[in-house]
Design a protein around this nucleic acid. Structure first.
Length: 456
RNA sequence: GGUCCCAUAGUCUAGUGGCCUAGGACGCUGGCCUCUCACGCCGGAAACGGGGGUUCGAAACCCCCUGGGACUACCA
Protein backbone atom coordinates (compact mmCIF):
# COMPACT_ATOMS: atom_id res chain seq x y z
CA UNK A 1 0.00 0.00 0.00
CA UNK A 2 1.62 3.27 -1.07
CA UNK A 3 1.85 6.08 1.44
CA UNK A 4 -1.06 8.45 1.17
CA UNK A 5 -0.26 11.74 -0.48
CA UNK A 6 -2.83 14.50 -0.77
CA UNK A 7 -2.70 18.09 -1.84
CA UNK A 8 -4.45 21.37 -1.33
CA UNK A 9 -4.34 23.37 -4.53
CA UNK A 10 -5.75 26.88 -4.20
CA UNK A 11 -5.47 29.46 -6.92
CA UNK A 12 -4.14 32.78 -5.64
CA UNK A 13 -6.87 34.85 -7.21
CA UNK A 14 -8.38 35.91 -3.91
CA UNK A 15 -8.27 35.34 -0.20
CA UNK A 16 -9.17 32.04 1.35
CA UNK A 17 -12.77 31.72 2.41
CA UNK A 18 -14.32 29.03 4.57
CA UNK A 19 -15.30 26.98 1.54
CA UNK A 20 -11.71 26.65 0.36
CA UNK A 21 -10.50 26.33 3.87
CA UNK A 22 -12.69 23.32 4.43
CA UNK A 23 -11.10 21.55 1.48
CA UNK A 24 -7.69 22.23 3.00
CA UNK A 25 -8.81 20.95 6.40
CA UNK A 26 -10.30 17.78 4.94
CA UNK A 27 -7.12 17.00 3.02
CA UNK A 28 -4.99 17.79 6.02
CA UNK A 29 -7.00 15.61 8.35
CA UNK A 30 -6.98 12.74 5.90
CA UNK A 31 -3.21 12.95 5.56
CA UNK A 32 -2.79 13.01 9.32
CA UNK A 33 -5.22 10.16 9.77
CA UNK A 34 -3.34 8.02 7.27
CA UNK A 35 0.14 9.07 8.28
CA UNK A 36 0.57 10.48 4.80
CA UNK A 37 1.91 13.69 3.33
CA UNK A 38 0.07 16.90 2.67
CA UNK A 39 1.27 19.04 -0.21
CA UNK A 40 0.55 22.69 -0.87
CA UNK A 41 0.32 23.56 -4.52
CA UNK A 42 -0.38 27.01 -5.87
CA UNK A 43 -2.41 26.88 -9.07
CA UNK A 44 -1.37 30.17 -10.59
CA UNK A 45 -1.66 29.40 -14.28
CA UNK A 46 -4.02 32.30 -14.74
CA UNK A 47 -1.46 35.07 -15.05
CA UNK A 48 -4.13 37.72 -15.29
CA UNK A 49 -5.78 37.07 -11.98
CA UNK A 50 -3.09 35.51 -9.83
CA UNK A 51 -1.40 37.77 -7.31
CA UNK A 52 1.51 37.16 -4.98
CA UNK A 53 -0.22 38.87 -2.07
CA UNK A 54 -3.03 36.32 -2.20
CA UNK A 55 -0.53 33.50 -2.13
CA UNK A 56 0.97 35.01 1.00
CA UNK A 57 -2.36 35.52 2.68
CA UNK A 58 -3.47 31.97 1.89
CA UNK A 59 -0.35 30.58 3.49
CA UNK A 60 -0.73 32.86 6.50
CA UNK A 61 -4.28 31.65 7.01
CA UNK A 62 -3.21 28.01 6.81
CA UNK A 63 -0.43 28.61 9.29
CA UNK A 64 -2.79 30.35 11.66
CA UNK A 65 -4.89 27.21 11.68
CA UNK A 66 -1.80 25.06 12.15
CA UNK A 67 -2.45 23.36 8.86
CA UNK A 68 1.17 22.74 8.06
CA UNK A 69 2.17 21.31 4.71
CA UNK A 70 4.87 18.68 4.45
CA UNK A 71 5.93 19.67 0.97
CA UNK A 72 5.70 22.74 -1.18
CA UNK A 73 4.51 25.24 -1.94
CA UNK A 74 4.81 24.24 -5.56
CA UNK A 75 3.84 26.86 -8.08
CA UNK A 76 2.47 25.87 -11.43
CA UNK A 77 3.89 29.05 -12.91
CA UNK A 78 7.35 27.62 -12.20
CA UNK A 79 6.64 24.34 -13.93
CA UNK A 80 5.74 25.55 -17.40
CA UNK A 81 8.55 23.61 -19.07
CA UNK A 82 7.33 20.42 -17.51
CA UNK A 83 3.84 20.88 -18.89
CA UNK A 84 5.23 21.66 -22.34
CA UNK A 85 7.30 18.48 -22.27
CA UNK A 86 4.28 16.42 -21.40
CA UNK A 87 2.25 18.15 -24.10
CA UNK A 88 4.97 17.44 -26.65
CA UNK A 89 4.95 13.79 -25.73
CA UNK A 90 1.24 13.71 -26.41
CA UNK A 91 1.74 15.61 -29.65
CA UNK A 92 4.36 13.10 -30.77
CA UNK A 93 2.15 10.19 -29.94
CA UNK A 94 -0.69 11.77 -31.86
CA UNK A 95 -2.77 12.00 -28.73
CA UNK A 96 -2.90 15.76 -29.00
CA UNK A 97 -2.84 18.21 -31.88
CA UNK A 98 -2.24 21.83 -32.63
CA UNK A 99 -5.34 23.91 -33.18
CA UNK A 100 -5.08 27.10 -35.16
CA UNK A 101 -8.67 28.20 -34.89
CA UNK A 102 -8.95 31.86 -33.95
CA UNK A 103 -10.27 32.51 -30.46
CA UNK A 104 -13.03 34.85 -31.65
CA UNK A 105 -14.36 32.36 -34.13
CA UNK A 106 -14.59 29.69 -31.48
CA UNK A 107 -16.23 32.10 -29.11
CA UNK A 108 -18.89 32.94 -31.68
CA UNK A 109 -19.53 29.32 -32.51
CA UNK A 110 -19.89 28.60 -28.83
CA UNK A 111 -22.50 31.26 -28.32
CA UNK A 112 -24.30 30.24 -31.46
CA UNK A 113 -24.74 26.65 -30.33
CA UNK A 114 -25.63 27.77 -26.85
CA UNK A 115 -28.38 29.96 -28.27
CA UNK A 116 -29.66 27.12 -30.35
CA UNK A 117 -29.74 24.98 -27.23
CA UNK A 118 -27.05 22.71 -28.53
CA UNK A 119 -24.05 21.51 -26.56
CA UNK A 120 -21.24 24.01 -27.06
CA UNK A 121 -18.27 21.96 -27.99
CA UNK A 122 -15.28 22.21 -30.24
CA UNK A 123 -16.13 21.10 -33.76
CA UNK A 124 -12.80 19.35 -34.27
CA UNK A 125 -11.84 21.42 -37.29
CA UNK A 126 -8.10 21.10 -36.64
CA UNK A 127 -8.35 17.52 -35.49
CA UNK A 128 -7.41 16.19 -38.89
CA UNK A 129 -5.31 18.86 -40.52
CA UNK A 130 -3.41 17.57 -43.53
CA UNK A 131 0.39 17.51 -43.20
CA UNK A 132 0.52 20.29 -45.78
CA UNK A 133 -1.87 22.56 -43.93
CA UNK A 134 -0.08 21.93 -40.67
CA UNK A 135 3.26 22.67 -42.22
CA UNK A 136 2.17 25.88 -43.83
CA UNK A 137 0.48 27.15 -40.66
CA UNK A 138 3.62 26.41 -38.70
CA UNK A 139 5.83 28.18 -41.21
CA UNK A 140 3.54 31.17 -41.10
CA UNK A 141 4.09 31.23 -37.36
CA UNK A 142 0.37 31.20 -36.88
CA UNK A 143 -0.58 31.11 -33.18
CA UNK A 144 -2.02 27.86 -31.87
CA UNK A 145 -3.16 26.01 -28.83
CA UNK A 146 -2.60 22.34 -28.08
CA UNK A 147 -5.74 20.28 -27.84
CA UNK A 148 -6.23 16.83 -26.41
CA UNK A 149 -7.52 14.24 -28.83
CA UNK A 150 -10.13 13.06 -26.40
CA UNK A 151 -11.13 9.44 -26.85
CA UNK A 152 -14.84 8.89 -27.28
CA UNK A 153 -15.29 6.47 -24.46
CA UNK A 154 -17.29 6.28 -21.29
CA UNK A 155 -15.39 7.08 -18.13
CA UNK A 156 -16.30 5.80 -14.75
CA UNK A 157 -14.68 6.00 -11.39
CA UNK A 158 -15.44 5.16 -7.82
CA UNK A 159 -15.74 8.31 -5.77
CA UNK A 160 -14.60 7.97 -2.18
CA UNK A 161 -17.67 9.79 -0.94
CA UNK A 162 -20.32 9.25 -3.59
CA UNK A 163 -19.59 5.82 -4.97
CA UNK A 164 -19.77 4.92 -8.63
CA UNK A 165 -19.95 7.86 -11.05
CA UNK A 166 -20.19 7.36 -14.78
CA UNK A 167 -19.91 9.69 -17.76
CA UNK A 168 -21.15 8.99 -21.28
CA UNK A 169 -18.69 8.78 -24.21
CA UNK A 170 -19.48 12.25 -25.53
CA UNK A 171 -19.03 14.08 -22.26
CA UNK A 172 -15.51 15.25 -22.97
CA UNK A 173 -14.57 17.17 -26.10
CA UNK A 174 -11.11 18.07 -27.37
CA UNK A 175 -10.24 20.40 -24.55
CA UNK A 176 -7.22 22.64 -24.47
CA UNK A 177 -3.99 21.48 -22.90
CA UNK A 178 -1.78 24.42 -23.65
CA UNK A 179 -3.13 27.91 -24.16
CA UNK A 180 -1.87 30.25 -26.83
CA UNK A 181 1.02 31.38 -24.62
CA UNK A 182 1.77 27.67 -24.28
CA UNK A 183 0.91 27.75 -20.61
CA UNK A 184 -1.20 24.90 -19.27
CA UNK A 185 -4.94 24.92 -18.80
CA UNK A 186 -6.30 24.00 -15.39
CA UNK A 187 -7.19 20.42 -16.20
CA UNK A 188 -3.87 19.69 -17.82
CA UNK A 189 -1.73 21.23 -15.11
CA UNK A 190 -3.75 19.57 -12.37
CA UNK A 191 -3.49 16.13 -13.97
CA UNK A 192 0.23 16.41 -14.72
CA UNK A 193 0.92 17.62 -11.21
CA UNK A 194 -1.12 14.91 -9.57
CA UNK A 195 0.72 12.43 -11.79
CA UNK A 196 4.26 13.68 -11.23
CA UNK A 197 3.80 14.40 -7.55
CA UNK A 198 2.45 10.95 -6.92
CA UNK A 199 -0.82 12.14 -5.43
CA UNK A 200 -2.76 9.12 -4.21
CA UNK A 201 -6.03 10.80 -3.20
CA UNK A 202 -7.63 13.88 -4.68
CA UNK A 203 -10.06 15.34 -2.17
CA UNK A 204 -11.81 18.39 -3.59
CA UNK A 205 -15.13 20.11 -3.97
CA UNK A 206 -18.03 18.59 -5.87
CA UNK A 207 -17.69 21.34 -8.45
CA UNK A 208 -14.84 19.29 -9.89
CA UNK A 209 -16.79 16.13 -10.56
CA UNK A 210 -17.30 16.91 -14.22
CA UNK A 211 -13.61 17.70 -14.63
CA UNK A 212 -12.61 14.32 -13.37
CA UNK A 213 -13.14 12.38 -16.63
CA UNK A 214 -10.81 14.77 -18.41
CA UNK A 215 -8.12 14.22 -15.86
CA UNK A 216 -8.60 10.48 -15.88
CA UNK A 217 -8.26 10.45 -19.67
CA UNK A 218 -4.97 12.29 -19.33
CA UNK A 219 -3.71 9.70 -16.90
CA UNK A 220 -4.74 6.98 -19.30
CA UNK A 221 -2.99 8.75 -22.17
CA UNK A 222 0.22 8.47 -20.19
CA UNK A 223 -0.63 4.94 -19.13
CA UNK A 224 -0.66 5.95 -15.50
CA UNK A 225 -3.10 4.89 -12.83
CA UNK A 226 -5.24 7.82 -11.75
CA UNK A 227 -5.48 8.70 -8.06
CA UNK A 228 -8.54 7.97 -6.00
CA UNK A 229 -11.02 10.80 -6.15
CA UNK A 230 -13.31 11.99 -3.39
CA UNK A 231 -15.63 14.91 -4.04
CA UNK A 232 -16.98 16.56 -0.96
CA UNK A 233 -20.02 18.79 -0.84
CA UNK A 234 -19.81 22.54 -1.14
CA UNK A 235 -20.31 25.03 1.64
CA UNK A 236 -23.21 27.34 0.95
CA UNK A 237 -24.48 30.53 2.52
CA UNK A 238 -27.90 31.18 3.98
CA UNK A 239 -29.14 31.79 0.45
CA UNK A 240 -28.09 28.22 -0.41
CA UNK A 241 -25.64 29.52 -2.97
CA UNK A 242 -22.08 28.19 -2.85
CA UNK A 243 -19.85 30.36 -0.71
CA UNK A 244 -17.87 32.90 -2.62
CA UNK A 245 -16.44 36.35 -2.25
CA UNK A 246 -19.95 37.73 -2.26
CA UNK A 247 -20.80 36.37 1.17
CA UNK A 248 -20.03 38.58 4.16
CA UNK A 249 -17.26 37.38 6.41
CA UNK A 250 -15.33 35.34 3.95
CA UNK A 251 -11.84 36.35 4.93
CA UNK A 252 -10.26 33.99 7.42
CA UNK A 253 -8.56 36.87 9.20
CA UNK A 254 -11.97 38.34 9.90
CA UNK A 255 -12.77 35.36 12.07
CA UNK A 256 -9.64 35.98 14.05
CA UNK A 257 -10.55 39.65 14.41
CA UNK A 258 -13.97 38.64 15.67
CA UNK A 259 -12.29 36.68 18.42
CA UNK A 260 -12.73 33.23 16.95
CA UNK A 261 -10.12 30.71 18.09
CA UNK A 262 -8.18 28.87 15.40
CA UNK A 263 -8.89 25.56 17.12
CA UNK A 264 -12.61 26.32 17.04
CA UNK A 265 -12.61 27.11 13.33
CA UNK A 266 -10.57 23.99 12.61
CA UNK A 267 -13.00 21.98 14.70
CA UNK A 268 -16.05 23.30 12.90
CA UNK A 269 -14.50 22.82 9.47
CA UNK A 270 -13.55 19.31 10.48
CA UNK A 271 -17.04 18.18 11.45
CA UNK A 272 -19.31 20.30 9.25
CA UNK A 273 -21.11 18.10 6.77
CA UNK A 274 -19.99 15.02 8.62
CA UNK A 275 -21.64 12.48 10.87
CA UNK A 276 -19.65 12.28 14.08
CA UNK A 277 -20.05 10.72 17.50
CA UNK A 278 -18.67 13.73 19.34
CA UNK A 279 -18.59 17.27 18.03
CA UNK A 280 -16.08 19.16 20.14
CA UNK A 281 -12.65 17.84 19.28
CA UNK A 282 -9.06 19.00 19.17
CA UNK A 283 -6.81 18.50 16.19
CA UNK A 284 -5.61 15.07 17.26
CA UNK A 285 -9.09 13.74 17.85
CA UNK A 286 -10.26 15.23 14.58
CA UNK A 287 -7.46 13.46 12.72
CA UNK A 288 -7.92 10.21 14.57
CA UNK A 289 -11.64 9.96 13.83
CA UNK A 290 -11.50 11.22 10.27
CA UNK A 291 -12.86 9.12 7.42
CA UNK A 292 -13.95 10.09 3.94
CA UNK A 293 -16.99 7.91 4.36
CA UNK A 294 -18.31 10.10 7.17
CA UNK A 295 -18.58 13.03 4.75
CA UNK A 296 -22.02 13.76 3.37
CA UNK A 297 -22.61 14.31 -0.32
CA UNK A 298 -25.09 17.12 0.08
CA UNK A 299 -24.21 20.78 0.45
CA UNK A 300 -23.85 22.31 3.89
CA UNK A 301 -24.91 25.71 5.09
CA UNK A 302 -22.17 27.48 6.98
CA UNK A 303 -23.76 28.41 10.31
CA UNK A 304 -22.07 31.23 12.19
CA UNK A 305 -24.06 30.45 15.34
CA UNK A 306 -22.63 26.97 15.45
CA UNK A 307 -19.13 28.35 15.04
CA UNK A 308 -19.73 30.64 18.02
CA UNK A 309 -20.82 27.63 20.01
CA UNK A 310 -17.64 25.75 19.14
CA UNK A 311 -15.67 28.82 20.07
CA UNK A 312 -17.34 29.01 23.45
CA UNK A 313 -16.65 25.35 24.09
CA UNK A 314 -12.99 25.75 23.21
CA UNK A 315 -12.59 28.89 25.30
CA UNK A 316 -13.85 26.95 28.29
CA UNK A 317 -11.43 24.09 27.68
CA UNK A 318 -8.38 26.16 26.85
CA UNK A 319 -5.60 26.52 29.43
CA UNK A 320 -5.62 30.02 30.92
CA UNK A 321 -2.03 30.50 29.80
CA UNK A 322 -3.01 30.03 26.20
CA UNK A 323 -6.11 32.16 26.61
CA UNK A 324 -3.95 35.01 27.88
CA UNK A 325 -1.79 34.67 24.80
CA UNK A 326 -4.64 34.94 22.32
CA UNK A 327 -6.23 37.72 24.32
CA UNK A 328 -2.96 39.63 24.35
CA UNK A 329 -2.83 39.91 28.15
CA UNK A 330 -0.02 39.26 30.60
CA UNK A 331 0.18 36.96 33.62
CA UNK A 332 -1.33 39.50 35.99
CA UNK A 333 -4.66 38.86 34.31
CA UNK A 334 -4.75 35.12 34.73
CA UNK A 335 -7.22 35.05 37.63
CA UNK A 336 -9.50 37.56 35.99
CA UNK A 337 -9.52 35.79 32.64
CA UNK A 338 -10.14 32.54 34.43
CA UNK A 339 -13.24 34.07 36.02
CA UNK A 340 -14.51 35.74 32.88
CA UNK A 341 -14.20 32.96 30.36
CA UNK A 342 -17.42 31.24 31.38
CA UNK A 343 -19.26 34.32 30.24
CA UNK A 344 -17.57 34.83 26.88
CA UNK A 345 -18.18 33.39 23.44
CA UNK A 346 -15.17 35.06 21.85
CA UNK A 347 -11.84 36.45 22.94
CA UNK A 348 -13.15 39.87 21.98
CA UNK A 349 -15.88 39.42 24.56
CA UNK A 350 -13.30 38.53 27.18
CA UNK A 351 -11.59 41.81 26.52
CA UNK A 352 -14.89 43.64 26.76
CA UNK A 353 -15.71 41.98 30.07
CA UNK A 354 -12.44 43.29 31.43
CA UNK A 355 -14.24 46.61 31.80
CA UNK A 356 -15.70 45.12 34.96
CA UNK A 357 -12.29 45.53 36.58
CA UNK A 358 -10.99 48.53 34.74
CA UNK A 359 -13.86 50.59 33.44
CA UNK A 360 -15.33 53.60 35.19
CA UNK A 361 -18.48 53.84 33.13
CA UNK A 362 -21.77 52.01 32.96
CA UNK A 363 -22.82 50.13 29.85
CA UNK A 364 -26.09 50.89 28.07
CA UNK A 365 -27.77 47.71 29.25
CA UNK A 366 -26.98 48.74 32.83
CA UNK A 367 -28.21 52.26 32.26
CA UNK A 368 -31.53 51.13 30.89
CA UNK A 369 -32.07 48.80 33.82
CA UNK A 370 -31.33 51.59 36.26
CA UNK A 371 -33.81 53.76 34.43
CA UNK A 372 -36.52 51.20 35.11
CA UNK A 373 -35.58 50.84 38.76
CA UNK A 374 -37.26 53.02 41.36
CA UNK A 375 -34.78 52.32 44.11
CA UNK A 376 -31.44 52.79 42.48
CA UNK A 377 -30.88 56.31 43.86
CA UNK A 378 -31.23 54.94 47.35
CA UNK A 379 -28.77 52.15 46.62
CA UNK A 380 -26.33 54.65 45.18
CA UNK A 381 -26.48 56.65 48.38
CA UNK A 382 -25.85 53.61 50.56
CA UNK A 383 -22.96 52.40 48.45
CA UNK A 384 -21.33 55.82 48.31
CA UNK A 385 -21.53 56.31 52.03
CA UNK A 386 -20.29 52.84 52.77
CA UNK A 387 -17.35 53.26 50.48
CA UNK A 388 -16.52 56.69 51.86
CA UNK A 389 -16.61 55.37 55.40
CA UNK A 390 -14.21 52.60 54.60
CA UNK A 391 -12.36 51.73 51.43
CA UNK A 392 -11.80 48.21 52.72
CA UNK A 393 -15.43 47.37 53.17
CA UNK A 394 -16.47 43.90 52.11
CA UNK A 395 -19.19 42.99 49.69
CA UNK A 396 -21.09 41.30 52.47
CA UNK A 397 -21.15 44.50 54.49
CA UNK A 398 -22.39 46.53 51.56
CA UNK A 399 -25.03 43.95 50.84
CA UNK A 400 -26.23 44.02 54.38
CA UNK A 401 -26.45 47.80 54.49
CA UNK A 402 -28.33 47.92 51.20
CA UNK A 403 -30.79 45.24 52.19
CA UNK A 404 -31.48 46.93 55.52
CA UNK A 405 -31.85 50.48 54.26
CA UNK A 406 -33.56 50.14 50.91
CA UNK A 407 -36.97 48.62 50.66
CA UNK A 408 -37.14 46.81 47.36
CA UNK A 409 -37.16 43.25 46.04
CA UNK A 410 -33.89 41.50 46.73
CA UNK A 411 -33.42 40.65 43.08
CA UNK A 412 -33.64 44.26 42.07
CA UNK A 413 -31.30 45.33 44.84
CA UNK A 414 -28.68 42.84 43.75
CA UNK A 415 -28.84 43.78 40.12
CA UNK A 416 -28.58 47.48 40.82
CA UNK A 417 -25.62 46.78 43.04
CA UNK A 418 -24.00 44.69 40.32
CA UNK A 419 -24.41 47.48 37.85
CA UNK A 420 -22.94 50.06 40.18
CA UNK A 421 -19.99 47.81 40.98
CA UNK A 422 -19.24 46.33 37.56
CA UNK A 423 -20.93 48.66 35.13
CA UNK A 424 -22.68 45.70 33.50
CA UNK A 425 -25.71 43.47 33.91
CA UNK A 426 -23.80 40.27 33.17
CA UNK A 427 -20.63 38.72 34.49
CA UNK A 428 -19.32 36.19 36.99
CA UNK A 429 -20.71 36.00 40.55
CA UNK A 430 -20.12 39.28 42.37
CA UNK A 431 -18.48 37.59 45.32
CA UNK A 432 -15.83 36.14 43.04
CA UNK A 433 -14.89 39.37 41.38
CA UNK A 434 -15.51 42.02 44.04
CA UNK A 435 -12.04 41.95 45.55
CA UNK A 436 -10.51 42.63 42.13
CA UNK A 437 -12.42 45.89 41.78
CA UNK A 438 -10.85 48.91 43.47
CA UNK A 439 -13.33 50.98 45.49
CA UNK A 440 -12.16 54.11 43.73
CA UNK A 441 -13.45 52.60 40.47
CA UNK A 442 -16.85 52.13 41.97
CA UNK A 443 -16.92 55.68 43.28
CA UNK A 444 -15.76 56.78 39.88
CA UNK A 445 -18.63 54.91 38.24
CA UNK A 446 -21.10 56.51 40.59
CA UNK A 447 -19.69 59.94 39.83
CA UNK A 448 -19.93 59.15 36.13
CA UNK A 449 -23.55 58.16 36.62
CA UNK A 450 -24.32 61.38 38.50
CA UNK A 451 -22.87 63.48 35.74
CA UNK A 452 -24.68 61.51 33.15
CA UNK A 453 -28.00 61.98 34.92
CA UNK A 454 -27.54 65.65 35.62
CA UNK A 455 -26.55 66.40 32.07
CA UNK A 456 -29.76 64.98 30.72
C1' G B 1 -30.13 22.65 -23.86
C1' G B 2 -26.69 18.39 -22.51
C1' U B 3 -24.00 15.68 -18.67
C1' C B 4 -23.26 14.92 -13.64
C1' C B 5 -24.11 15.61 -8.27
C1' C B 6 -27.54 16.33 -4.21
C1' A B 7 -32.54 15.85 -1.35
C1' U B 8 -34.35 13.66 7.06
C1' A B 9 -36.68 19.66 11.70
C1' G B 10 -34.55 26.79 10.63
C1' U B 11 -29.24 24.58 10.37
C1' C B 12 -25.48 20.15 10.55
C1' U B 13 -26.35 15.12 10.86
C1' A B 14 -27.78 9.40 12.65
C1' G B 15 -30.44 6.00 10.04
C1' U B 16 -27.90 0.94 5.14
C1' G B 17 -35.91 -3.00 4.97
C1' G B 18 -38.71 -4.49 10.75
C1' C B 19 -34.90 -2.06 17.03
C1' C B 20 -38.15 4.68 14.02
C1' U B 21 -44.65 6.46 18.10
C1' A B 22 -37.55 8.85 13.35
C1' G B 23 -31.95 9.52 17.44
C1' G B 24 -28.09 13.44 18.44
C1' A B 25 -26.02 18.61 17.99
C1' C B 26 -26.61 24.15 17.13
C1' G B 27 -30.44 27.58 17.39
C1' C B 28 -35.38 28.56 19.54
C1' U B 29 -38.29 27.66 23.94
C1' G B 30 -40.60 26.17 29.33
C1' G B 31 -38.72 25.01 34.24
C1' C B 32 -34.93 24.24 38.10
C1' C B 33 -30.30 26.24 40.12
C1' U B 34 -28.83 31.43 41.06
C1' C B 35 -27.52 38.40 43.14
C1' U B 36 -27.45 39.05 36.93
C1' C B 37 -25.65 36.70 32.70
C1' A B 38 -23.35 32.35 31.62
C1' C B 39 -22.57 27.24 33.08
C1' G B 40 -25.15 22.91 34.63
C1' C B 41 -29.65 19.86 35.09
C1' C B 42 -34.77 18.47 33.55
C1' G B 43 -38.60 19.26 29.78
C1' G B 44 -40.87 21.27 24.84
C1' A B 45 -41.94 22.71 19.73
C1' A B 46 -39.75 21.33 15.16
C1' A B 47 -38.10 16.81 9.69
C1' C B 48 -38.20 11.75 6.13
C1' G B 49 -39.98 17.27 -1.06
C1' G B 50 -44.17 14.80 -4.29
C1' G B 51 -46.05 10.51 -7.00
C1' G B 52 -45.66 5.64 -8.43
C1' G B 53 -43.70 0.82 -7.72
C1' U B 54 -40.77 -3.69 -5.10
C1' U B 55 -42.05 -6.05 -0.31
C1' C B 56 -45.78 -9.25 4.71
C1' G B 57 -43.25 -4.46 5.95
C1' A B 58 -40.07 1.36 3.52
C1' A B 59 -36.86 7.33 5.74
C1' A B 60 -34.15 3.29 3.82
C1' C B 61 -34.38 -0.36 -2.70
C1' C B 62 -36.14 1.01 -8.08
C1' C B 63 -38.58 4.61 -11.50
C1' C B 64 -40.69 9.34 -12.62
C1' C B 65 -41.50 14.37 -11.17
C1' U B 66 -40.09 18.64 -8.53
C1' G B 67 -36.48 21.56 -6.33
C1' G B 68 -31.34 23.00 -5.50
C1' G B 69 -26.31 22.90 -7.39
C1' A B 70 -21.97 22.00 -10.53
C1' C B 71 -19.70 21.48 -15.18
C1' U B 72 -20.27 22.42 -20.28
C1' A B 73 -14.08 28.66 -21.15
C1' C B 74 -7.28 29.77 -24.30
C1' C B 75 -10.99 30.69 -15.22
C1' A B 76 -9.49 27.54 -11.58
Amino acid sequence: MPVVKVRFAPSPTGNLHVGNLRTAVLNYLYARNQGGTFILRIEDTDMERSEARYETSIMDDLKWLSINWDDGPYRQSERTDLYRDFANTLLEKGLAYKCFCPKEKLENARHASLDKGEPPRYDGRCRALSPEELKSFEEEGKPYVVRFRAPRKAIFFRDGIRGQIEFPPDHVDDFILLKQELTPSYNFAAAIDDMTMGITHVIRGGDHISNTPKQIMLFEAFRKKPPKYAHHSLLVGNDKKPLSKRHGATRITEFRDMGILNVALLNYMGILGRGVMKEVMNEDELARTFTLKSLSGSDSVFDMEKLFWFNKEHIRRMPVERLLEVTGLDQTYSEKVFLLRENARTVVEIRELLSIFEGTEIADSGLSYLASSSCFQAVVAVVRNALNDSRDITLEDILEKVVHTVDAPKKELFLVLRILITGRTDGPPLKDIFHFIPSVHILERIRWLDQRLSSQ
